[in-house]
Design a protein around this nucleic acid. Structure first.
Lengths: 240, 240
DNA sequence: CGAACACTTCGGCAGTGACCGAATTTAGAT
DNA sequence: ATCTAAATTCGGTCACTGCCGAAGTGTTCG
C-alpha cells in the first residue's frame, strides 16, 4: 500500500529553496536581515546587479513569502516579510558555512553579543533582556503566550516608550527563537518599540553594513539601571 | 565608500538554497525527516526518479552538509546530517506553504501532538517530556547546558535504558528548537535512547509514510506512570 | 569464478532561469 | 507641461542543471 496522496502534506521545501538558490537573492536577503527596508536600486547596488534584475529577484522573493513591499511615492521599499522568516533565515545562515572555520559553539563573538533580527534585538542581549522582563513581572508567560504583567505599564513609563496597541487579539510580544543562543527572545510591537528606543537614546548603535549592535557606554548604564544586567554578563568576550 | 570584503562574512544562503531547490531533493529530505536512514534505491523510489538521478541528488545534499551517508556492504545508507539540520528543515517546512490553508497557530493536530524529528521525539509530547525530566530532577539546566540531575540514574534504571556514553566532553542531551510548539525539546544520545525504548516497548508507533508518532494505550499508561503526563495534556484534539 | 545486485560515472538532451539592453510606466521635481 | 528618476516589462542570449540510457565499479551470494 503506497499512496502519494496520504494525509500528510509534503512540504515543498523546493519552493523556498528555489527562492534562496541564487547568490544575488542571498545577498539581497542578507542586506535586509537587519529589519530595515530598502529600495530596489539600493538592493541592486548591494547585490552588484542591474535594477531590472533586482526587480525580478524581489518579485520572486515576495512571491515566495520571504519579503514584503510597500510603495511610498515613486519608491518601493522591500523588507523581510515577518519575524518567523527572519528567524528561519538566521537558522539557515548559521548552517550555511559548514565547511568554514565557524564553530557551532561560538559563532561570532561580535554578532552573538547583540544584533538586530528583523526589527527587534536578538543575540545574547535579546535573550537576557527577555529573561529580565519576565523575571521582573513586566511580562508573564502562560501557555507560551506572552501577556503584560503587573509591572508592564510601570516599565513603559520608566523608559518612556509607547507601544502601538493593535486589536485586542494581537499580542504585544511573541517568542522568537534565537539560533545563536538557542533560546527565546521577544519579537512583536513591544520588542520593536524597545529597540527603537535603544537606538534613539544612543544606547545601541548599528554597526555599518552589518546587523551587529554595539552597546554604548550610556547603553551599559541603562541596562544596569533598567534591567539589572551587568556589563560582564552581556559582554562575554569583548573584542575591543 | 563601498567594499565587498567587509568584516562581516556574508552567509551564503544560496548554497543551502540550491541544495533545496529541486522537487526531487525536497521529497528525499522529507522522506529522511523522521531520522531513519534509507538506501539510494529506496529514496529514488520515494522521489519517483531513477537511481542514477537519486545518486546525483544525494551527492549534492551531502556536499551541502544536509545529509550524511554510511556504507554497509553494498548498500549506502543516507540520513539527515544532524539535529540542527533537522530542526532547520522543520522550520522551513513550517514556512513553505504560506499560501495554503495551514494556519500558524494550529498546523496539524496529528503531527503537532507527537512526531519524530531526526531521531528523537518532537512535537507536543517531546516538549512535555522534556519539561517533566527537568521538573523531576532527572535533568538539570545550567547556562543552557543540559546535565544529568540527581535522579538521572534512577530514571534510566526505571525505564530500563542504557545511554551510550561518549567522551566526557560530549553532552548526553542538547536542547533542540521545536517549531510547531515554539519551545525546546531534547535531542542527543539520551533522547535517541528514549525514543527507541518507546518504539520497542510499543508505547509509540510510527505512522506509515509520515513522521507522526501514535501513542498506544500502553503508551498512555507508561506516560502517566513514568512521567506524570495525563492523556488529556498530550492529546489536545484527538483526531480519532 | 561468475551471476546478480547496489551504486556510481559519463554523455547528450531538454528545460529553466539569471542577466542585461531597450523600451514603457509612473511619480516627483522644475 | 516638461524633465528626471525609480521601477517594471519585454526579448534574446547564455550558463546551468535535472533527467535517463549506457557503461563501469564494487560487493554479495551460489
Amino acid at each position: 500500500m503506497y499512496s502519494l496522496t496520504s494525509m500528510t502534506i509534503e512540504p515543498r521545501l523546493d519552493i523556498i529553496g528555489a527562492a534562496l538558490a541564487d547568490p544575488s537573492r542571498s545577498r539581497i536577503l542578507c542586506e535586509l536581515m537587519d529589519g530595515r527596508a530598502f529600495t530596489n536600486k539600493e538592493l541592486a547596488c548591494a547585490a552588484c546587479i542591474s535594477p531590472q534584475t533586482a526587480s525580478a529577484h524581489l518579485k520572486q522573493l515576495e512571491g515566495a513569502g520571504l519579503t514584503a513591499s510597500l510603495r511610498s511615492g515613486r519608491h518601493v521599499y522591500h523588507r523581510i516579510a515577518n519575524a518567523d522568516v527572519a528567524a528561519i533565515l538566521e537558522g539557515l545562515a548559521q548552517l550555511s558555512p559548514t565547511d568554514h572555520l565557524s564553530r557551532p559553539g561560538r559563532p561570532d563573538a561580535n554578532t552573538s553579543c547583540a544584533r538586530s533580527c528583523y526589527n527587534h534585538i536578538a543575540g545574547r542581549l535579546g535573550v537576557l533582556m527577555t529573561d529580565r522582563l519576565i523575571a521582573r513581572n513586566v511580562l508573564t508567560v502562560r501557555n507560551d503566550a506572552i501577556r503584560a504583567g503587573p509591572r508592564y505599564q510601570t516599565f513603559l513609563d520608566e523608559i518612556r516608550i509607547e507601544v502601538p496597541l493593535g486589536g485586542t487579539g494581537k499580542p504585544l510580544a511573541m517568542l522568537c527563537l534565537d539560533w545563536t543562543e538557542r533560546r527565546h527572545h521577544i519579537s512583536g510591537p513591544l520588542a520593536t518599540a524597545i529597540m527603537q528606543k535603544f537606538l534613539e537614546a544612543k544606547w545601541l548603535e548599528r554597526r555599518t553594513g552589518s546587523r551587529a549592535l554595539i552597546v554604548t557606554e550610556d547603553g551599559f548604564d541603562a541596562l544596569e539601571r533598567r534591567f539589572c544586567l551587568h556589563r560582564q554578563d552581556i559582554d562575554l568576550a569583548d573584542p575591543v
